[in-house]
Design a protein around this nucleic acid. Structure first.
Lengths: 215, 215
DNA sequence: TTGCCCATGTAATTTGTTACATGATTTA
DNA sequence: TAAATCATGTAACAAATTACATGGGCAA
């Protein structure tokens, strides 16, 4: 019975929706192409699943009737298989995307910050060097974002992906400033006594942006 | 004997190192306390594992000789168990933290951006409302960061965690600005040509939830 | 003719979550 | 004394990765 499927909103991992989202743009694509696209744009604000997982999700989506596939040429095994989203898939995806409760707060896994947090185990110079490398890496990432933006700008149907990439560009610029401020803090820490936390007298605290929290 | 240990670096998932990192600060702690601490500070720049995983990692760390535990009171099962880092653990952790190649680029999973990216499936008003909710959530998170900062400021040994939290504070401020810029972009998109309107015939452009007169 | 990119898939394993079971201690 | 919080752990499962197997097409 398909009635049981419709009764409740399909609970799928975000990855499945992300893959379905890739399919929601005009055109049919192979799993391989999806992976490349995810690598070059989705990963900047979400994440790029392993290729084997993409294939697995595509199979699941097809089972659910959210996607359909067609082999090119005869019915051979391992022939190129192009996927397309179905109407049911588009509807389900739209329903998921509109569910705001589903989207929790953004998740950040920042390896550099984890290491700064463990700064008491490292030499100060090593720590600063790591931030420097992070700055360099971030500049390269920013360049990659901008390259993706060029591609997205070509097609009017990609207005929203272009918006997301614009956000990513700004996000990387912010990341650069964050890293520079971190570097300054790090230098302030080791200049003054090793145990003097930079809290008093440093400007930039008391910044705007906070809600009018009374008190 | 340190020469043989140096030969190969222990390969552990980042979560194991994060848990060991929690133990690297002065004092002995229970798994439960570790979880609370992760929830209130580590999660802002890294991530907070499930409590069951913390227990699992603690067992593994003890097996490796990186942590030691002591039951309080007699040898009963399920008695309170406090963990401490060992010298070997501290050394291994320092080695891991100094390895810059290990720390790849930061990973971001931003549910809101994923939805913006899929904006062609949503009503413009709904999209803007979601960004508004994100702004509100971010302000709350920022308040939580600042509360954690107060605790960290008390103890001089926590200078580096305090630094990481300062970074998080700025990161959240940047997130607010990013969201505001996104909102502006979104309004610019729908004001101009609306080639991406969802379904024709749905004139329900009456704003829901969000629509303070821009100005 | 070697090697790279395209392309699909399986198997084994690890990582991580949720749900559940258990009981001590604190607080209202 | 009822509740919430503290505290530890197991079991079942889901999510995701790596390693591997296979093979076509193309370019140096």
């Amino acid at each position: 019975m398909t009635s049981s499927q419709k009764a409740k909103k399909q609970e799928l991992p975000p990855t499945a929706w992300a893959v379905l989202g890739l399919l929601s743009f005009p055109g049919e694509r192979t799993g391989y192409e999806l992976k490349k696209w995810a690598d070059s744009s989705l990963r900047f604000f979400y994440w790029s699943p392993a290729i084997s997982q993409i294939y697995a999700e595509l199979r699941r989506l097809e089972e659910l009737g959210y996607a359909s596939s067609a082999r090119s040429g005869p019915e051979e095994a391992r022939a190129k298989r192009r996927y397309a989203i179905t109407d049911a898939g588009r509807e389900a995806l739209a329903g998921w995307a509109a569910d705001t409760a589903e989207a929790g707060p953004p998740v950040l896994k920042h390896g550099l910050l984890l290491r700064v947090w463990l700064g008491h185990l490292a030499e100060p110079g090593r720590l600063r060097a790591m931030v420097g490398e992070h700055l360099e890496r971030t500049r390269e990432e920013l360049a990659a974002v901008r390259e993706a933006m060029e591609h997205a700008a070509e097609v009017p149907e990609w207005a929203f992906p272009a918006l997301a990439l614009r956000w990513s560009e700004r996000q990387h610029l912010a990341e650069l400033e964050l890293a520079q401020a971190l570097l300054a803090d790090l230098e302030g820490l080791t200049e003054g006594g090793e145990h003097t936390a930079p809290q008093a007298g440093t400007p930039g605290r008391q910044a705007e942006g906070d809600a009018p929290t009374p008190g």
